[in-house]
Amino acid sequence: MVQFTFWDILRNLLLAAQWTVLLSLIAFVGGAVVGLIVCVARISKNPGPRWAARIYIEVLQGTPLLMQLFLCFFGLSLIGLNVPPLAAAAIALTLYTSAFLGEIWRGCVEAISKGQWEASASLALTYPEQMRYVILPQALRIAVAPTVGFAVQVVKGTALASIIGFVELTKAGTMINNATFQSFLVYGLVALLYFALCFPLSLLSRRLERRLNVARAS
């Protein structure tokens, strides 16, 4: 049996953590961009985009991320499209994250009281102006906490990408564990690394909330 030193284990986990970070970044950025579009469509006054967004959200929230990954990687090959694993993961994670973020942000926008809409309308602001100057700045503040909360879930959710061949943090942990049989050490390190990734996000969230509140006070 191969002998792993502590350094071997840590080094391999750190290398694998890079994938976790990359996959998370893809999910955040892709999900935020598409999620914004979904959110705008979802609160649109036009029933066409509103229903399209509704169906998009229901389908993606109602199916497991694991299956979405699976279908993007193996399913697309079935119809003759050979997608590399990274592209498949990017597509699936973006779809999944955007559906959740779209819905989270819709909730935040709709949480702004009707009076704000009416007041801004009485100032003769157009719809984009109402959004830009009145509604979104207030919605943004409410959105920070749930968005970061979901982002932390996404970081952990990237572990599912191992089904399509990514050796990210969790997968590397499993592989090393069954070569070393030191479950406690290996999974302990895996958990610590996830914490090291997620905790700064929570800190950032707290700082953002404070800063956005200051903006209101001044």
Partner: peptide, 16 residues
């Protein structure tokens, strides 16, 4: 890569 001795990983995470 999860089934020694048929397939496991070495210290470089390459299958053996």
């Amino acid at each position: 890569q999860d089934f020694p001795p048929f397939g496991s990983v070495g210290t470089d995470l390459k299958p053996v």
